[in-house]
């Protein structure tokens, strides 16, 4: 397994696209988070405290876009090998297919976790700078953002896990579909379209059900630090829903990868 890990790490590291995707992941998390945070102030509320803005969640909202990079990285890890034809070389070097997939999952997770952590810390730092200027001050009930603060720490750590899980979901989809473009499309559709559909559903009960089982809505519940009782699903339970999707995709992809001719 350690040799397979070494090989997959070398493979990931030696593609220029990996560096670009990881840089984009961190940069988009920070920049979009900063842009969204900068666009919101307390002027539209009766009192600044009355806004009840979930400031950590606001600062971390960049991952909604940045997850595209995580999805692409995950999908390319397997799908890219089918496109380039290197899957044959990979499986002749490491014939145990479950080992190959596990090694890919491990190195992609590590890379996404590292760049996600950088992005999330950057986004929290940007929020700490920007939020007080827009009226979200400690005096108004909005403590300065800090990764050491309990709820913010959970939101930040959970966001990194969210990115890792979306990458794994895409990796499983890539192994099942054997095509990066198809896997990226399928995963982004799952992440983005289900919330849109949920918003179109008139029935409240169904809307809450959809929100509870839509991977992005449920997964991002982990970013919430205020009014948790009003969430359709709890922070960790929500991340668990996304994890279930990722596990299902990895099992489906793994089963196909192990059983089929290469």
């Amino acid at each position: 397994m350690s040799r397979a890990l070494h090989a997959e790490w070398t493979k990931l590291r030696t593609l220029p696209s990996t560096g670009w995707l990881l840089a984009a992941l961190a940069a988009v998390t920070v920049l979009v988070g900063a842009a969204v945070t900068g666009a919101v102030d307390t002027s539209h509320c009766a009192t600044p405290a009355g806004c009840a803005e979930d400031t950590p969640r606001l600062a971390l909202s960049g991952v909604r876009i940045a997850q595209v990079a995580a999805v692409a990285l995950g999908a390319l890890a397997v799908g890219g090998e089918y496109a380039a034809g290197t899957i044959g070389a990979t499986l002749t070097a490491v014939p145990r297919r479950v080992t190959v997939l596990a090694a890919k999952a491990a190195v992609v997770s590590g890379a996404v976790a590292a760049s996600g952590t950088a992005g999330v810390l950057g986004a929290v730092a940007a929020g700490r700078l920007i939020l007080p200027r827009n009226g979200f001050t400690p005096e108004h009930g909005y403590p300065l953002l800090s990764p050491a603060d309990g709820a913010t720490a959970r939101a930040a750590f959970g966001t990194v896990l969210y990115l890792v899980l979306t990458a794994l979901l895409a990796l499983g989809a890539g192994a099942a579909l054997r095509d990066s473009a198809a896997a990226i499309t399928a995963v982004l559709a799952l992440l983005w379209i289900v919330p849109v559909l949920a918003s179109l559903v008139a029935d409240d009960t169904w809307q809450r059900r959809l929100d509870r089982f839509a991977p992005m809505t449920a997964g991002l519940a982990v970013q919430s630090t205020r009014s948790l009782e009003r969430l359709p699903i709890g922070p960790w339970a929500g991340l668990g829903v996304l994890a279930a999707y990722a596990v299902a995709a990895l099992l489906a992809g793994g089963a196909r990868f192990a059983a089929r001719d290469a």
């Binding site: 040799r3 090989a7 070398t10 593609l15 696209s17 034809g85 044959g88 990979t90 070097a93």
Partner: peptide, 26 residues
């Protein structure tokens, strides 16, 4: 074995292609 000579990732350097293969088998 060499089955399909074109089966190399176009963006990866030749040396790196051989490197990951070497790593896979120690």
């Amino acid at each position: 074995a060499m089955l399909d000579a074109s089966a190399v990732h176009p963006a990866r350097r030749a040396r790196d292609h051989l490197r990951w293969l070497a790593h896979a088998n120690g």
